[in-house]
Amino acid sequence: MDRAMSEAPVVKVSGLRKRFGAGPLVLDGIDLEVARGEFVSFIGPSGCGKSTLLRLIAGLTPASEGSITVEGLAPEQARKRMFFVFQDANLMPWRRVAENVELPLLLRGDAPAPRRERVARMLEIVGLAGAEAKFPWQLSGGMKMRVSIARALSVAPEILLLDEPIGALDEMTRDRLNEDLLAIRSRDPFTGFFVTHAVAEAVFLSSRIVVLGANPGRVTAVIEVPFAYPRQPELRETPPFLRLLATTAQALRAVRVA
């Protein structure tokens, strides 16, 4: 952690404000520094701009005021180093599983042989070996999300941005996916940004939780999560975990009341 902190931050957000067109402020005065290897969750009530903040870091929407740098670059220039996992998997319905995972490699011009090799490895990592030839409609919601994660990881991004990736899945599937996400990260480390409205998920995954309030979105609390990685599923039942869960839930409730 000390080594990481001494390095320049991977993502630096300062004085960020965002409004769409002439609309009201969605995000107001966000300051944030994230070091390499961190896993930061944005949590808050709907309409607090947490997804917008993630999209700003990805360079999918421009800032109205203030600045964002990713690895010292403007977000649009740093896209080669990051990837985005969209809500609802966002797969191409006409491409088979392997073809979906392959897409980012294809678009950046990798040769067919290394592409195939990489796709096979990615599908194995997310536990979908054997599903290469299936079409998205043949998959369950959890499997679709695994394909989406495999696609994002195929380019080995240094930064992974996940926008409520598993919001629509049942709890058991979510827990499994979250555990797998951490297992993947211990093998292929990436700096993670995660948008969610589920407290337990945020605590289990993150090294830091940023709580946002709504109208306009502001950082109302930052909670450090001290548990070391790799984390085991059993962590969820330990008293320190449950205490932190309570702290986070309270911070979130404070936002909702305000």
């Binding site: 990805a58 999918l60 896209r79 080669k80 990051m82 990837f83 985005f84 969209f86 809500q87 609802d88 966002n90 191409m92 006409w94 897409l103 980012p104 294809l106 678009l107 950046r108």
Partner: peptide, 25 residues
């Protein structure tokens, strides 16, 4: 689909790539 277009943006896809792999299919 707006989200699929954003996927192509994240991939730094060229206009020709977007046409071939996204818009035409």
């Amino acid at each position: 689909d707006r989200h699929l277009r954003e996927l192509f943006v994240m991939c730094n896809a060229t206009r020709a790539q977007e046409a071939r792999y996204l818009r035409i299919p």
